[in-house]
Every structure is written in C-alpha cells, then in structure tokens.
Write a protein that binds this DNA or RNA. Structure first.
Length: 641
DNA sequence: CCGCTGACTTGACCTGATGTGG
DNA sequence: CCACATCAGGTCAAGTCAGCGG
C-alpha cells in the first residue's frame, strides 16, 4: 500500500538521503552560496556604512557629516576590513570589556516577631529553610500554590534545605502556616509605596548608579547597553501551563557558577571579594558576556546586550533581509509544495502539507520535546492526531480542518480553516490507523523540514515564514486601510488594526486586563457625555444662527462662528473617544507587542509614518525607537518590504 | 543519522512609574 | 493633589536552529 508500515521507516529515510544527493549536486549549492554570500556582504556594507546611529555612535555620525568624504572613506575601509574578517571566521567582536554581572541581594532573615507555624505551633526555622519558606510565603495569593504538583515539588526541595531536626518535624506541607510571613511581605511592599519622595529618589539614584557601573560594556569602540546585567535571584520555578517542574527551587547563583566572556586584552571583571569566577574565557565567536547553568532544566542562561546594540540590530536586520529574499521566491516554493501533495512518497506529502500549514497559518516549527520535562505543547511538526479534526462539510464550507492545541507558553491555538481538497485527502491519509496520541506527521521533524527549506533558499528555515507572512501582511493591510484624509487618530487606528491582523495571524494572545470591563464602561460614559455635549452645542448654534438672522450684526456673526468651532472641537473629541473605544475593544485579548518587536520589519512602519506624516513616536516608544534606530535611519517613504 | 548541547530569539506576565481626569 | 488606569521595562521561561560527537 501507499502508507508504509512503521518498520519500513528506515529504508524509506535512506532512500530520501540518496535522492536528495542526486537532486542537489554540491557544485550547484556552492555557486548558489557564493552569490548569496556576496549579496549578504553588500547588504552588510550598506547597513554599517549607512547613517546607522545610536547614542553611542553619535560622535562618528557627526564627524562623518562634518567632513563627509574622508570619514566615509576611512569608515568604509575599517568596515570592509572588519566585515571581511567577520564573514570569514564567524567572529562577532574584536574587543569586549565589561564589569561582570550584579548578584542578587543576600537573604535578610525575618524579624523575630514574624512567626512560622507548624501544626498550629510557632517554630523558628534555620536560615536556609526560612529563606525557601519565604519564597513560598510570597506566592501564597497565587493560584500556583494550590496546585498539587507545585506543592509537591516545593516541599521536596524545601526539605533538602532543612536541618535534620526540621526534617523530622516538618512532614506535611498542609500543616505549615506561612500567613504571617505573607502578611509581612505585603506590609513591606505597602510601606515601599508609602515612602516619601526623597526616599524614592534615593533608591532611584542608587539604581541609576548600578546601571551606569554595570549596565554598559565596551564592544569594538562602542559603549553598548547590556540587556540583563542582574543575575536572576533564587526563588520557586514558575513554569507556564501544566509544567511538571513547577514549584522546584531555583537555587542562588554564586560567582563560582559564572563563566565570564571578554577579550584577553580587556580589563577583566573582578569577582566579589573572597570569591572566584568559575571560568574566564575569551570566545569572540559568541555574543554573551557571562553565563551560568540553571538548575531546573540544566540549561544555560546568558547575559547579553540590549536590542539597541549593534550586534543585535544587525542580526535583526539580517532576519528581515532573509524574509525579503523569501518574498522573491515564495511563489516558486508554494508551487512546489502544492505539487508535492501529489508525491508518491509519504514523507514528501507530509513535508508539503506541514509546510503549507506553516506558510498559511504561521505555525511554529514544532521541535520534539523531552516528555515529562516540560509542559505538553506542540508546533507544526509535532502535531498529534488528537489536535486536528476533519470536517468534509461544515456550514457552507467544504474540507474544513479544526485545530485545537497548546502552543508555545501553553497558549491555546484554536482555528477552523477550509483547506484544499488535496490537503484534506492527505490529512485523512495521515490519520489512518493511528491513535489520538500518535504524531500526525510521523515521517517528519523540524530537522528534515529545515534541511529541505535550506535547499529551496539559502538561509530559509520554518520561522522565516512567520517573519515573512507577518511583515507582508502588515504592508498589505497598511495599503488597504490607509486613507489620506483621515485624522491622526484614525490613521493610528488603521495602523493598530494592521498590527492586530498580524497578531491574530501569529496567535499572540493576552489575558484580558483585569479592569477591562470597567474601563470600557468608563469610556462609554465619556462618549455618552460627549454626545450630549454635542447635541447641546448644536442647539446653541441653531439659536445663534437665528439670532444672527434677526439682527445681522457683527457680534452675532462672531457668536455663530464661535459655536461652529466649538462643535467642531467636540466632534473631534468624540471621534477620538470612539476610535479609542473601538481600538480597545478589538484589542481585548490580543497582544500587539510581540509582533511589533519581533516579526514586523520596522522599515515598513517607518516608511508608512513618513508617507502619511505620522510622527514615529506615535508608533514606537523610546525603547522601540532605540531598538529600531537602524530602520528609522534607513527607510524612506517608498520602502517596499 | 541522531540525540544532545549551546546560542540566540521569541513570549507572556508582573511590577513600578507615569500620565490623566476629577 | 489624589486615585486610578495605563504603560514601559524588566523578567525569565520557552521556543528555534545549528553544530558536534558518537
């Protein structure tokens, strides 16, 4: 039959390899690579030699403009040499100097009057046990602490911190009473809010000092902002969704856990007195400044630069260039995967249908995950039979597929879409003889898919489709929604709507704000008031007109004009409110931030602002403008993604 | 291949700061 | 000026993807 039984998997996979080899001779690939490399290189030059500036860059920017010719030549020379170096050996920087991370504040024991009770009796805990207890006490109001797994994991890890006496005594979490501790912390945070202006100012200044000292590094002659210079404090692990490790103790990170990365010829960061770094290395093939291994999943955490930094900006820019290259060949790729739906090989059909979903629905790739280590979530390649339902007919539509699964961060993806008949028939085939918990695409994984994509276009991976489809959707929507005569608020509403279309495509959700209903009501009240105001003003105008008709004097004429203006103003205010209400209502469960920050080519937005005369501040706040400085500098009003 | 690890991007949520209207 | 709502920024979990060694 067409569908090979599982034991044939191996043979089939080997066939796949042989065939790929024939399909894509090495020689062709090298040619292709060379061209791509050249293009990449040219683009990079444009990026670096363009008016790309940040605050730190401002000197060279100005000098460049005062004496354009010599500086352009000089900078080009430096840039070319450096680009040459970077493109050949993959190094990310030449010089890197920083002060190392800031550690979490040490534990301050509870005041004696704040008691912990076990089985109704007060009990003084040893410092280590008490510290862990406070982590739990702080979360008492959170739903987490009612969950069985959370409590079980917490208790297990807590016991590890106890003295043997405590261990024998404390055997049941249900008999533990943390409420005094909890109240103490609440009072503390209340007190913090009640602090005087001066005290608050003092804290602010101290934070600023810390930022100035540790928040920046020197990378290749630029002072760059560090993204996260503070080490994560100890606490209880909060996974998302049904995480099997929720409640486990995230241990305190010490200097001995930290690997420092900086250049050899830099002033190395000093560990706190009496401590040592785990290691100091000089690896310029990576961008991080410090790293440590986290104890819950055993994964590595990093200290890296802020999005406004050259190294992040360049990477971001590169990402959008890859997506633009996809734009040029997406038709070809679509034709091919549609063709592949008819393939006589199962693995190719599965690959083609999966790619169709990724393209059409902007699904994530879906790597396999270790079972029991994380929440059970899926992406495209890891979809299981239980996640889709097929309806040959639904309402008016034919061949409807219903998706219902938990994606990244355990956010539910629910969608019903009509698909082409061929896709539908293929899906029926993939489902044959399978159990609900079996993989839908049993002959496919992200590695196979990405290898295939790599052959279709240099640098193409599954996530590029998300970037491409997000950006192209924004561009199209902006074109459709734009109306030159619109007022500024209306233009911004159009922009937000375009942004929203993307957020919906990418399934970027948020919990509706807690005060949503109320704030909506407030807004409605305001609108009603404005409307009353408006009708009152209209009546007044009518009266003024009548007055003018009767007297025909200058004074009454002026009064009419005044009333007209008043109405106009009120109308504007009303419109603004209505726009605001629409925007907010439509935005109830949708988060715009993620797509704005990660998926939309900022040059589209910048160009749109220039074209319609919208101040960039209306679209991007300060942080965002810093992150997208390169795009703000680069894009003109006719920019096409 | 194949699983594992490292590096880096993407993501929702939380909190303190700030703006706004009464 | 205060109460409240909103927002920016920070936090850190959870993805993607490449490369490596067996």
């Amino acid at each position: 039959g067409f569908y090979p039984s599982p034991q044939h998997n191996k043979t089939s996979k080997r066939e796949y390899d042989d065939e790929e080899f024939v399909y894509k001779p090495k020689k062709v690939k090298t040619e292709h690579d060379k061209k791509a490399k050249k293009r990449k290189h040219e683009d990079k030059l444009f990026f670096s030699s363009g008016n790309y500036t940040t605050d730190k860059d401002i000197n060279s920017y100005y000098i460049c403009h005062i004496c354009p010719f010599s500086w352009v030549v000089f900078l080009l020379f430096v840039v070319i040499r450096w680009e040459e170096e970077r493109s050949t050996d993959g190094s990310k920087w030449r010089f890197l100097e920083h002060k190392g991370p800031v550690f979490a504040p040490l534990y301050e024991p509870m005041p004696d009057k704040v008691k912990f009770y076990y089985d109704g009796k007060p009990m003084k805990l040893s410092a280590p046990a008490e510290e862990v207890a406070t982590f739990f006490a702080k979360m008492l109001d959170h739903e987490y602490t009612t969950k069985d797994i959370f409590r079980k994991n917490f208790f297990k890890d807590w016991r590890k911190e106890m003295t043997s006496e405590e261990k024998t005594k404390i055997t049941d979490l249900n008999k533990c009473n943390f409420s005094e501790m909890n109240e103490y912390f609440k009072a503390q945070s209340e007190a913090r809010k009640q602090m005087s202006k001066e005290e608050k100012q003092k804290i602010k200044e101290e934070n600023e000092r810390l930022l100035q000292e540790y928040g920046f590094c020197l990378m290749d002659n630029h002072k760059e902002r560090i993204g996260n210079f503070r080490i994560e404090p100890p606490g209880l692990f909060r996974g998302r969704g049904d995480h099997p490790k929720m409640g486990m103790l995230k241990r305190r990170i010490r200097p001995e856990d930290i690997i420092i990365n900086c250049s050899k010829d830099s002033k190395h960061p000093k560990p706190p007195p009496g401590t040592k770094w785990k290691e100091v290395r000089h690896d310029n093939k990576v961008t991080w400044l410090a790293s440590w291994t986290e104890n819950i999943q055993g994964s590595i955490k990093y200290i890296m630069l802020n999005p406004s930094s050259r190294i992040k900006g360049e990477k971001d820019w590169q990402k959008y260039e890859t997506a633009r290259r996809l734009k040029k060949c997406v038709d070809r790729i679509r034709t091919q995967y549609r063709d592949d739906w008819k393939s006589k090989e199962m693995r190719i059909r599965q690959r083609a249908v999966a790619l169709y979903f990724i393209d059409k629905l902007a699904l994530r790739a879906g790597n396999e995950k270790e079972e029991g280590e994380t929440a059970d979530t899926v992406g495209c390649c890891s979809l299981r039979v239980e996640h889709i339902k097929l309806y040959p007919k639904m309402d008016e539509q034919e061949y409807v597929v219903e998706f219902d699964f938990l994606g990244k961060d355990s956010i539910r993806y629910y969608n019903k879409i009509p698909v082409e008949k061929r896709v539908f028939k293929n899906l029926q085939l993939f489902l044959e003889n399978k159990q609900p918990e079996d993989d839908l695409f049993d002959r496919l994984n992200t590695s196979i898919l990405n290898k295939h994509l790599q052959e279709l276009m240099d640098g193409l991976t599954a996530k590029v489709f998300r970037t491409y489809n997000a950006s192209i959707t924004l561009q199209q929507q902006l074109k459709e929604l734009a109306c030159p005569d619109d007022s500024l608020p209306a233009k911004i509403l159009s922009y937000n709507r375009a942004n929203r279309a993307v957020a919906i495509l990418c399934n970027h959700q948020r919990a509706p704000p807690k005060t949503f209903e109320k704030s909506m009501q407030n807004l409605q009240t305001k609108i009603d008031e404005k409307q009353n105001q408006l009708s009152a003003a209209r009546k007044q105008l009518k009266a003024a007109k009548a007055d003018h008709k009767a007297s025909h004097d200058d004074k009454s004429k002026k009064a009419v004009e005044l009333k007209r203006k008043a109405i106009q103003r009120i109308e504007e205010q009303l419109m603004k409110l209505q726009v605001q209400a629409t925007d907010r209502e439509e935005n109830k469960q949708i988060a715009l931030g993620t797509s704005k920050l990660n998926y939309l080519d900022p040059r589209i937005s910048v160009a749109w602002c220039k074209k319609w005369d919208v101040p960039i501040e209306k679209i991007y706040n300060k942080t965002q403008r810093e992150k997208f400085a390169w795009a703000i500098d680069m894009a003109e009003k006719d920019y096409e993604f």
